[in-house]
Design a protein around this nucleic acid. Structure first.
Lengths: 340, 340
DNA sequence: GAGATCTATTGACACGTTTCAATCGGACCG
DNA sequence: CGGTCCGATTGAAACGTGTCAATAGATCTC
């Protein structure tokens, strides 16, 4: 076993050892770590050198116990398996990493129970703030944290009142874009395939779809609601659709669409020849799928990154921080699955 | 604003308030939380009722300061954007959530610098243990944590010495399966497209490929090494390949393969007619791609879940825990991209 | 040159929990 | 009935850091 160059560095080296070695008081070491500008340059340099020599690592538990919060934020998403949310997570993680924050990642799997459990866990961890895509409503579990004074930013969910930040994409418009496009392509019997309408994203996309139909004064919307929003669910739903094929299917996300696509192609249902298919999210794989998928594009990485920025702004300037509700506009990416 | 049923519950309710309200000492409350079996059933029930009434949430910072560690583990992966690792993360997260642990997720983006920074952050957070897919070598940064007595399990990377657990998939065999299959299909001029060989997964898959060639006594391996392992990199590599098309391309992951596939199809290079393509990981989208992709399947969710289990076992029974090196065997999934 | 002002540093206390030796009360044994 | 043992509970110390009022030293002002 290699011996450390500093001799027998034992179990823990704390702020006190550093202070002693550098010939200053513990308070000064703490200042070097937290408010370096208040320490004379030479002292600062000396302390930092000792820190490096001794391999000192600050005890985050003690720090956040005393300070009331640490350099950790919580990130709670609906579904870690969905590339859309994976990209959101990447955006958050990148920014937090730059600012030297850690991220506790939780998946709620769209279940209120898991959401509540994880929120409680985050509260226990004294996280500095939380980014959350709520399962149903921002007045539910997320409110629990806000009561405790933990800043919260809603991700992909609008803030109903102006007392918190949110970053969203306009899902009503997204639904409208998709169905309007299908109508233009001549589809009339349209299926909306989505998850539970208690999840806002689904409800809004459906609302946009209905609006498009109303404005056009044509077409009908059949609704197929599934429990989960992965390709397996799309698979199963598509099998039920085979009995009575629609002109088009508008899927509330790309995973569903890819499941649908697969069944249709296997069963010899031509896409786009017989049925048009539109997805949502425009995940990286939509373009590469068997029939390149028309999809409503959202900017997930940017979503995560901006939400993270808002959260840290609220944490760092609690006084002057002005809550913002940011809404991006989605974009329809037209590919082969809806070509004439 | 709704008033709490317990009156004006202020900022923080600590273990002391609970103790007072329940007519016991703080020590007993702590025992209810940590060793309930040592507390008389009636006392326990009373304390738990008060905890619920007061909405008490344990302060994890104080807890882990005193106890030396908290209920958090670190998870460090190469690339959060890769569905393979996303599935690994899901496996870890699910198990940890069941055992009431939190997970701090970090991505190293295959950069040693980011790995080191994040490892330091995890050490600061006093994590209970760490699951890590090291960028290059387990003797690098991960060793830093082990010196501090933090249990570490290697994910998708074998433990060289028997002093820690690891969970891996046999990548040499995986490479062999892929290339052997290509040889059987008649390919001779084969390209290996992968990331830096300093990353073990790439090195092993290449080694397996070479072994297959040697055993067959036929065929040659051209190597194309790219910096990142996403579909963009595959895209760029494929464009360079157009100048001198091989018989087959063995890609070190599916993202690369999908990038390659896209360029080939756009440029009119028939797959599998002119070039065979094999991927690696068998991500969910491989089956749905334009030409369904032959790929080497790994069990990512199981990988994550088992690694998590091993880590907690080491944490909970530090004495009797026996380090294990678990290796799964990969499986070749044959699809259209290599059909005759 | 004496007081005022300012900067750099100090030192002790507090954060909320866990832990452990000490204590208490009751049951059991001879 | 006295002594012993055992389980349940207690109370205070300690974990390592951040904070802040106090201090020391240096510079400036009149």
């Amino acid at each position: 076993m290699p011996r450390s160059e500093t001799g027998s560095r034992d179990v823990t080296v704390g702020i006190k050892e550093v202070a002693q070695q550098a010939g200053v008081s513990p308070g000064t070491v703490s200042n070097v770590l937290n408010r370096p500008e208040r320490v004379a340059p030479e002292t600062r340099a000396r302390v930092q050198r000792v820190i490096k020599e001794l391999g000192f690592v600050r005890n985050g538990s003690a720090s956040s116990l005393r300070a009331g919060h640490g350099r950790i934020v919580g990130l709670m998403l609906l579904d870690l398996g969905n590339p859309f949310f994976a990209e959101v997570a990447r955006g958050v993680e990148d920014l937090m990493s730059e600012r030297d924050y850690g991220v506790i990642l939780c998946g709620s799997a769209s279940q209120a129970g898991r959401e509540a459990r994880n929120m409680r866990m985050l509260a226990e961890q004294q996280v500095r703030g939380v980014l959350v895509t709520p399962v149903s409503d921002s007045r539910g579990t997320p409110a629990l944290l806000r009561e405790r004074g933990i800043p919260t930013v809603l991700l992909d969910h609008p803030a109903t009142r102006g007392d918190q930040c949110s970053v969203t994409v306009d899902d009503v418009t997204g639904g409208w874009l998709a169905v309007n496009h299908l109508l233009e392509r001549g589809a009339r019997d349209i299926v909306f395939l989505g998850g539970p309408l208690t999840i806002r994203q689904n409800a809004d996309r459906r609302k946009g779809a209905l609006r498009a139909l109303r404005e056009a004064g044509a077409g009908t919307l059949r609704e197929v609601i599934v429990d989960e929003m992965n390709s397996r669910a799309g698979h199963e739903a598509a099998e039920r659709l085979l009995a009575e094929l629609p002109d088009a299917v508008f899927c509330a996300n790309d995973l569903l669409a890819m499941g649908v696509l697969r069944v249709f192609l296997q069963q010899g249902v031509r896409v786009p020849g017989r049925v048009l298919v539109v997805g949502y999210d425009d995940i990286e794989y939509a373009v590469a799928s068997a029939v390149p998928l028309t999809s409503v594009r959202q900017p997930p990485y940017k979503l995560g990154r901006i939400a993270a920025k808002l959260l840290l702004d609220e944490c760092d300037n609690p006084g002057e921080h002005a809550h913002q509700q940011i809404m991006f506009q989605p974009e329809l990416i037209i590919r082969e699955s809806t070509s004439r």
